[in-house]
Design a protein around this nucleic acid. Sequence first.
DNA 1: AAATTTATGTCAACAAGACTGACATATCTT
DNA 2: AAGATATGTCAGTCTTGTTGACATAAATTT
Lengths: 165, 165
Amino acid sequence: MSRQSQAKAAKPESLETALGNTETIDFEIIELLFFSYRDFVSDPDAILASSGFGRAHHRVVHFVNREPGMTVADLLDTLNITKQSLARVLKQLIDSGYIRQVAGPEDRRQRKLYPTQAGRDLALALAEPQSRRIARAFEKVPPEMRPGVKLFLDGMRDRKTSEAG
Amino acid sequence: MSRQSQAKAAKPESLETALGNTETIDFEIIELLFFSYRDFVSDPDAILASSGFGRAHHRVVHFVNREPGMTVADLLDTLNITKQSLARVLKQLIDSGYIRQVAGPEDRRQRKLYPTQAGRDLALALAEPQSRRIARAFEKVPPEMRPGVKLFLDGMRDRKTSEAG
DNA sequence: AAATTTATGTCAACAAGACTGACATATCTT
DNA sequence: AAGATATGTCAGTCTTGTTGACATAAATTT
């Protein structure tokens, strides 16, 4: 935290002065992440708008499709939201026939989640434009550099401290 | 809304069946984008929580720092939100002394936006953990693949149809 | 000069999706 | 039998997005 800039009180807030550590900060990638994510979620948003669902529903349908049989607790861990937040959208998806619950065979307190056919259809419809966008973006990357994208994105995730945390 | 699933009443919804086009859809990158962005914004969120600001304030402070002198209209184009949404957070940032406005020298209707020293400090404090996360992620990418990341992220953006749209 | 357009601000109402806190129920574990 | 765990639910709050309507000042057009 070297805020040396405040020390030199000579100029009274010169307008054009930039940040001190500008050189060391990767503003460009920060912005690219913002813009790319903003546009990445805009595709499904348009589809969801017509069905009365939102982004939260999208996430639930996506992950239940990706891992059929996952429990409510699994989903909470994945989404990093509270159970009250999840409950609202999950209930709507169950009532609308996109997802159904089955009591766990071992532990009957658990509710294992499965997509219905409508749920699979919806997940696919939402993933399609996103996948097309990803394919388009990869076309601009030289083939030998493409594996780096996945490595980078994976490296951006928090490392799971499985427990003891 | 083709709810064909109800038509074929043969199988009573086999539980484990996955999506039809699973092969053609890049679910892996879709998820990596979700997880990486989720964790990417968690760093500044923690800092913002203590100052009473939110993500919306972060974006404004960031872009005004990146392009001092930008107008309100510029900011609206960048953020893709309504002026009423922007007004709320912008007013708070001005009242709190993080951003100030100057009437445009050519067009005096415009309000050119500049960060104060506090605004620059805040932008830097928020960018630092994000930049460190990005640096960590790049370490896992072979150097010759690194330029591909920027190309990919840029390719994910919507193409500006400057006007005529 | 008058009319219109543009840039910005503001009031009011609403919605999605996150949060906290409290409490209920069924089931598993000790 | 007692306690812990997985899930559900009620109720209220906050942030951040939306729409619609209207106000003001300054620039542009007629």
